[in-house]
Every structure is written in structure tokens, then in C-alpha cells.
Computed example of a mutant assay.
Amino acid sequence: MGLGRGSAVLLLLCLFVIQSEIVNAATYTVGGAGGWTFNTNGWPKGKRFRAGDRLVFNYGRGAHNVAVVNKGGYAGCNTPRGSKVYRSGKDQITLSRGMNYFICSFVGHCQFGMKIAIYAP
């Protein structure tokens, strides 16, 4: 069974929208030239993020990590069970729609501002 002309046009339009979102995704280096380090919590201010944007976390491997946490983990500086933890020193994470929370789970690092919260519509 073939696609009707209207179905084919709709399919092409959907593919175009998906491709446009991927092409328009931005890449941000967390913390700028200083990388993912202490007092990074203010870094997102003034930036406009979108779902699909990529964050690059640069840091010394073994000196820090990046834990993707929930709101409670962010507020309490803890890593809930099941949280994804990155350790490569050159981590790339794609933002999900809604709130995205990241902390360094090394003892004391989050408390010294090594955490960010980003809203991505």
C-alpha cells in the first residue's frame, strides 16, 4: 500500500522539523574556558538553552565528575540511586526538555558551587 500525496507531504514535513531541531542545537562548554569547576553554579545565567542542546563538561579526570540528578539531589548535593555519573573529563550531555540538574558528587564540591540547574523548553 503506497502513501497518498498528503501523507507523503506530511511525512516530509515531520522529517524536516526533526532535522531542523537537530541542526539548530547549540553546544555550550560549561564554565567557559575555566571548565567544570568550583563556583560554576552561576554560569547558566543569561544563556537561552533548548532541549537538544549539548553541554560539554571539561575537567581533570579523577578530580571531578558530573552526576545528572533530580531536584532533590541538586538541592541537597547528593546523588540519588540510579543517577547517571560521567567521569571522562570530557563529557557531552544532551539537554532534555524541562529542568536539568547536574552536580559534582565528590565530597564538598557541590557545596562549593559545582552544580548547575538549566531549564530547556
Rank of each mutant, 00 (worst) to 15 (best):
F57H: 00
A25L: 08
L13S: 15
V23R: 13
V68S: 11
G35P: 09
A75K: 15
V66Q: 00
G42H: 10
L55D: 01
G60H: 09
C77D: 02
R48F: 07
V56R: 03
Q111C: 05
G6K: 15
N65Y: 05
T29V: 13
D53R: 03
I116C: 04
G46M: 08
V56A: 06
H109A: 08
L55Q: 05
A67R: 04
I22S: 13
V9A: 15
K45T: 13
G32Y: 02
W36P: 02
M114Q: 14
V69D: 05
G4Y: 02
T27C: 07
C110W: 04
L12K: 14
G34W: 09
T94Y: 06
F16Y: 02
D91C: 12
V23P: 03
W43G: 06
G108V: 00
A75V: 13
G82V: 06
M99K: 11
N39W: 04
G98L: 08
Q19G: 03
L10E: 15
S96R: 15
Y74M: 01
R87P: 01
L13R: 15
K45I: 09
K115E: 07
S96K: 15
A63P: 08
G2H: 10
N70C: 05
A117W: 04
L12A: 14
M99H: 02
F38R: 01
S7N: 12
V66W: 06
I116L: 11
G32M: 00
C77M: 03
S105I: 00
P121S: 11
C110L: 04
N58M: 11
S83R: 00
G73T: 08
G108A: 14
I116N: 00
I116P: 06
G76A: 01
F112G: 14
I103G: 02
R81E: 07
M1G: 13
M99S: 11
R48S: 14
R50I: 05
F57Y: 06
F106R: 04
L15P: 07
K90S: 15
I118Y: 01
P44G: 01
V9C: 03
I22C: 07
L95R: 00
N78D: 11
F49M: 10
A26N: 12
L55R: 09
T94D: 06
G4H: 09
I103M: 03
V17G: 08
G52E: 10
A8H: 13
Q92K: 03
N70M: 06
V68T: 02
R81I: 12
N78F: 06
V56Q: 04
A8S: 13
G42P: 03
C77T: 09
F112V: 11
A33H: 10
K47F: 05
G4T: 15
V68Y: 02
G82F: 10
R61G: 01
